[in-house]
């Protein structure tokens, strides 16, 4: 009888231990439904579920020059402007790519700037299958967040069970202190995308 009771207790203890183990080890719901990363480097064609993306170049500038509603405007920044030129295409059906984040080496994420309102060639991009198009993502980042950065691109800001292109910005030309070699004084956003 005592043996029986002990066995029961042992089973109960084991069950509790298994439950606890599962609770602590299982991925969080947000991780289970979170972005599915598709990785690549600069110049690679990175294939997400609905779109394909290639980062062609990254340029840096101290000031952005834009013309909005016929008025010229310059935008300064406490950090540095990073302008990422990409080629985008849809895989199977017309889609919209609207979200990009500059993720620095420390894990800090910088979303695309919202300071440019009426400039063409900026997201959201409507892309069609078989018709690759070029576009620009513009970020405002501290110089210390440039070396070892990753570009995260997805269709939307909030999504579940969908892919996210994660491009390691490995082709940047940097000084030994990790800041870019070339920083333009002024970058003209009205210039056509090259």
């Amino acid at each position: 009888m005592i043996g029986h009771r002990l066995a029961n207790l042992a089973i109960l203890g084991l069950a509790a231990a298994i439950c606890y183990g599962m609770q602590t080890s299982k991925p969080h719901y947000a991780d289970l439904t979170g972005p599915i990363p598709v990785r690549g480097g600069m110049g690679d064609d990175v294939k997400a579920r609905l779109f394909q993306l290639r980062v062609d170049k990254v340029e840096f500038a101290k000031i952005l020059a834009v013309s909005e509603f016929g008025k010229d405007r310059t935008l300064t920044t406490g950090g540095i402007w990073a302008i990422v030129t990409v080629e985008l295409a849809a895989t199977n059906s017309t889609t919209t790519v609207s979200e990009a984040t500059w993720q620095g080496p420390t894990g800090l994420g910088y979303r695309e700037t919202e300071r440019l309102a009426m400039v063409s060639g900026l997201p959201p991009f409507t892309v069609e299958p078989g018709l690759p198009a070029r576009g620009r993502f513009v970020f405002e980042v501290p110089p210390s967040e440039i070396s070892g950065a990753t570009l995260l691109v997805s269709n939307e800001r909030a999504f579940a069970l969908d892919s996210q292109a994660r491009i390691t910005l490995d082709g940047l030309r940097l000084k030994p202190d990790g800041t870019p070699e070339m920083v333009a004084d002024i970058y003209d956003m009205d210039e056509p995308i090259q």
Partner: peptide, 8 residues
């Protein structure tokens, strides 16, 4: 299997 929506 590709499809296109009306253009903007």
């Amino acid at each position: 299997g590709r499809s296109w929506l009306p253009t903007s």
